[in-house]
Amino acid sequence: MRAVLAGTASFFLALGLATSGHAGSRAEEILERFENANQWRDHVMVVAHRAGGLQDGKRRFAENSIAALRDAISLGAEMVEIDIRRSADGELIVMHDSWLDRTTDCKGEVLGYAMTELRKCHLVVEGTGDVTAEPVPTLREYLSVAKDKILVNLDNKLETADLVDMVALARAMEMEEQVVVKANLWSAARVATVKATMARVGQGFQFMPIMADDAVRDPAFVEAAGNAFAVDAVEMITWRGDAEKMTDTGGPLFSAKVKAVAVRGNWHIWVDTHAIVNKPGGFLSGGRGDEMAVAAGFPNEVFGFWAERGATMIQTDEPRAAINWLAANGYRVPYADVEEPVASVAGQADLSQLPVN
Rank of each mutant, 00 (worst) to 15 (best):
S65H: 12
N36R: 15
M173D: 09
G202K: 12
G282Q: 07
A293N: 03
V345H: 11
W40H: 15
E339W: 03
R33W: 05
L92W: 03
V271K: 05
A172C: 04
N64E: 05
S98A: 13
G289Q: 05
G282R: 07
A233N: 03
L75P: 08
G90M: 09
Q353S: 09
G129E: 04
F205K: 05
P355L: 04
E174W: 06
G57E: 14
Q39T: 13
R200D: 14
F305Y: 12
G287F: 01
Y331G: 02
R60L: 15
E308L: 11
K259T: 04
H122P: 12
G281S: 11
G53P: 12
L17K: 08
G297T: 09
W239Y: 12
M95T: 05
S255D: 05
G21A: 15
E235I: 00
E301H: 05
T116W: 02
R171P: 04
D350G: 11
M173Y: 05
P252K: 08
M166E: 15
P252S: 04
I66L: 15
R190D: 04
G297L: 07
I73G: 09
T128V: 07
E63N: 08
L118M: 08
A327S: 15
R119Q: 10
V333F: 05
M246P: 06
K259L: 10
I82W: 02
G53W: 14
W270G: 00
V145S: 10
E28K: 07
E244Q: 12
E301R: 11
H49D: 08
K182S: 02
V131F: 04
R332P: 03
T197S: 10
R50M: 10
P355Y: 04
K259I: 06
V110C: 01
F205H: 11
A172H: 09
W325L: 11
A67E: 13
K157R: 15
D290H: 06
K157I: 12
S144I: 11
Q178S: 07
